[in-house]
């Protein structure tokens, strides 16, 4: 029973950690690029902020999934559920899709966004085009999140 609970907590933790790493790297890449552009043109802060913030969603998806895990195992309420070892494994594995898609797509979305920052530097009117490009990468994190939610929802406790 103890082990089951531990495994579920590991699952939640992995979701936050990997999603967070992906977003941190992604936002970092885009942030560096935009600081470079802003040394030349400080007025672009507003539009660049959008591109820098975009790779941040993966971390939020990870956080959200971890919160669903916490709700599932009742860590916030008064009644903590008792988990078998296999239920613990199930929750851990259910958390993996959002964790890994978030890690990889966060990094790559950051790369797309930082190229987008350079594009906005030269073509300020075309702000939304790189945003859409970045959203194409994010699709896979969204799908990972979707499956994690469905899996967590399906696990019987």
């Amino acid at each position: 029973m103890e082990l089951g609970m531990t495994l579920a907590i590991v699952g939640g933790a992995i979701a936050v950690i990997l999603g967070g790493i992906g977003s941190a790297i992604g936002v970092g890449l885009a942030g560096q690029a935009s600081s470079g552009v802003m040394t030349e043109d400080p007025g672009k802060f507003g539009s660049l902020l959008l591109l820098v913030a975009l790779p941040g969603t993966q971390g939020i998806y990870g956080f959200l999934s971890a919160f669903l895990v916490i709700l599932k195992i009742g860590l916030v309420g008064e009644t903590v559920v008792s988990l078998t070892v296999s239920q613990g494994w199930q929750i851990l594995i259910a958390a993996l899709p959002v964790a890994f898609t978030g890690l990889v797509s966060g990094i790559h979305q950051g790369k797309v966004c930082s190229s987008g920052v350079y594009m906005v530097a030269k073509q300020p009117k075309d702000l939304m085009k790189p945003v859409i490009m970045a959203a194409l990468v994010e699709t896979y994190a969204v799908l990972g999140l979707l499956i994690t939610i469905l899996l967590l929802n399906g696990i019987k406790i």
Partner: peptide
């Protein structure tokens, strides 16, 4: 299948709002 993102994004808003309230 790509439209399944409507569910994921809709859920994300609701869950984060719930987290804030918790």
């Amino acid at each position: 299948l790509s439209y399944s993102r409507l569910l994921a994004l809709g859920l994300a808003t609701g869950v984060i709002a719930m987290v804030v309230n918790t």
